[in-house]
Amino acid sequence: MVPITTLHYLVVAAALFVLGLIGVLTRRNVVIVLMSIELVLNAVNLNLVAFSRMWGNLHGQVFSIFIVVDAAAEAAVGLGILIAFFRNKETINVDEIDLLKW
């Protein structure tokens, strides 16, 4: 079989990225949109770690740790916003969250 090269990992990361992008653009449920964002961040992480291995140093891995930290913070804040909004309008569909003030 073909030996596994960096390109294989990049293709997997691209696939995950595109799947996450489709999720963000097409789903109506806010929680699933947030989960698709997590998919996108994971794809980016995979890319970074694959390149870190290709170049042979650890900068990519260190930066991917920062991205994990950032994803955690963003998920927490995003879900906090969702809960605050849900308390006011009783909906979790992005189509219906369309007024700046009501």
Binding site: I4, Y9, E38, N45, V49, S52, R53, Q61, A72, A75
Partner: peptide
């Protein structure tokens, strides 16, 4: 990540992402 010789990032991924963020998502 383990296959890419990044064991620490793999461990961080399991602890933070799968064990922390996903629990948060399930709660919400």
């Amino acid at each position: 990540y383990l296959m890419l010789y990044a064991p620490f990032v793999a461990g961080v991924q399991i602890i933070v992402y799968a064990g922390g963020i996903m629990v948060l998502f399930l709660f919400v």
